[in-house]
Nucleic acid binder design. Structure first.
Lengths: 196, 196, 196, 196
DNA sequence: AATGAATGAGGTTTCATTCAT
DNA sequence: CATGAATGAAACCTCATTCAT
């Protein structure tokens, strides 16, 4: 089982508290509109002190992204390992990704998507490499489903469509509504392999 | 047929040129990282002169969004009117939305999604009202398909999933690749009504 | 009799209307905070058109001041001419100056005092010369009263004290209150020659 | 005795130095024509550094005014306490106010009068409340003189006339001339209680 | 005379980052 | 490690003035 930490994937060290606060603020106001003072105030230190933990504001952003990719890649791995059939693996992947996106790591995931551009080219490349591992896990499952004839379309494209579907969920999903994440995962599975 | 103008939906007046340049820059670097000087330089005027056309930088953003919503709402209307069956209407809607998103209004559409937060609450409300009309057109078609039994899931949710799918397309679609927008629209239709 | 014109001392030509509007705005918001656009809007023209009437914004300020000094110098002259005794002349001067300051030329007079610093050195000198004539009229009367033994203090100082007294009146005087300008002039006379 | 500090009422902290420089510049060029860069240059820091001490340029203006009102209210209190008869108290008040206006706090006092309008409504109200205390001290003395029959006119009006007289003094008084502030105070007392 | 778009200098303020304490 | 004053670059916006029409 993945250890469940403070904000998840982020521990309770000064560094961890900084990252949690930053993720929250970046998600709320965007990276550019969050000041280093905002972050410092959120954890109760002075703005200058932040630079003992991170070399720059952008480094904080990168750290948030790196942590959340690592944490959710591990979650994906465990989701796959927990199932036998390709179809069950797909549902598990979707369920895990939805959990990432609207559940415990929602803020950091939102930041990952919306503040991507704020990363320097250099760091974008590094984060992209990590993201590649995550995507590999997805493609393996989709390709095996495709080989089984579960759907006709290109697995690569299907993954892109699923990425869009799950990525948009935080913009409309109501955690207190009648639709559960399990239901939603099922509906999404049906978009891949057909209804029933 | 919708008239095809300069950047589309935006004419060749000074104001129109400003809007095109702004959309391009906002898409490229983000609203916050685009300076008023950048925009002015892109159209060959001085930064101060911008404020004869728009009251503030944010007003430019809003104008870009308003224009693109209007233009694409009209495109949706014509897409629906051009088809008879509900299924064909769905394909036409998807085709039209893809055209908006990766075709002639790609930049402004990207801005609409990614820079939404940069709008003041007040302007968000105004833009949301316009966006509501656009969504209504979608829901009518999906609901009639649903009544016909073309799919079981909630039409409202299906629309949300489609929004995610199309919205993510610019992040991976290659206009020069072998997959055409028509092909892609077909693949998406299948996600709703099943693979034939 | 002094001709009574539009705002007083200012006629109904385009130039006159500009000066009235400017005096009003300068008094209300100060010279620096009044924009050339404010003035233009107040008379219903475009900002660029102002420069057909005045070379610069500062020229408008100077014109307001020049007009009001001329107008009120003439009023002083007539006040003196209308009385025989030095004491009656003093009361008439005070009454006239109060009229300038809280009556028909109140706005321009306030501008004369409060926006003096906004004039270039050059124009300050020119305005000072005009103001000198005005002050001469005062000193003549005060000196004759002094020679008559009506008061002991230096007439020059007395004039300074009176200038302060009258100049401050707009900050507290209530035109609709029970104290009339005539009453006030009497009280001021008593400050010079004693209470009865 | 009131302690005599740097510019008076303003100490030698960074904030105090900023305030002194600002008072000097505001008096010299007016609030609107003094730039934040001017103030910074006058104390030898960068313009951005000012905002560690004051939230806005207007805040500096308010601080200057607040300090000078407090300082001079205390001076007034001590002036009254130092005398026994109402007539002597009046002279002491005048002497103290003249000291404020042409002496140690001359610059800040000038700013208080001439830049009043540059304060936001909100801050005007706050400053007015402070000023009210100062004026109360004056009225108490004038009312007791009035009860003693030292003059007939309304004490409230007399205070207004004195305010005008003293307020105008910086515009003509020559500190190196033969007229001392004590002499001037005496002349002003005579304007209230008669020459005798 | 009038217009109104354009200029361009300059204003206040923000903010990531540094560094002496 | 923490502080907080200072930096200095750069951002948005204002505005008197010009000028082609």
């Amino acid at each position: 089982m993945v250890e469940s930490l403070a904000i998840n994937g982020i521990d309770d060290s000064p560094r961890g508290r900084l990252l949690s606060a930053a993720a929250h603020l970046f998600r709320d106001k965007g990276f550019d509109r969050t000041t280093v003072r905002d972050i410092a105030a959120a954890v109760g230190i002075q703005s200058g002190s932040i630079f003992h933990h991170f070399k720059s504001k952008e480094d904080i952003l990168y750290a948030v992204m790196e942590e959340v990719i690592h944490f959710n890649t591990e979650r994906l791995r465990q989701a796959i390992a927990s199932q036998d059939s390709a179809r069950d693996k797909l549902r598990a992947l979707l369920r895990a990704e939805l959990q990432s996106i609207v559940g415990d790591t929602a803020e950091a995931m939102a930041v990952l998507v919306t503040e991507w551009r704020c990363l320097s080219d250099d760091k974008q490349r590094k984060a992209l490499a990590l993201r590649g591992i995550y995507e590999q896990l997805w493609l393996q499952v989709l390709e095996s489903l495709h080989r089984e004839g579960a759907f006709r379309a290109d697995p690569f494209i299907i993954r892109r469509l699923l990425t869009g579907m799950t990525g948009w969920v935080p913009n409309w999903f109501d955690r207190d509504g009648s639709l559960s994440l399990d239901d939603l995962a099922d509906i999404m599975v049906e978009r891949v392999v057909g209804e029933s």
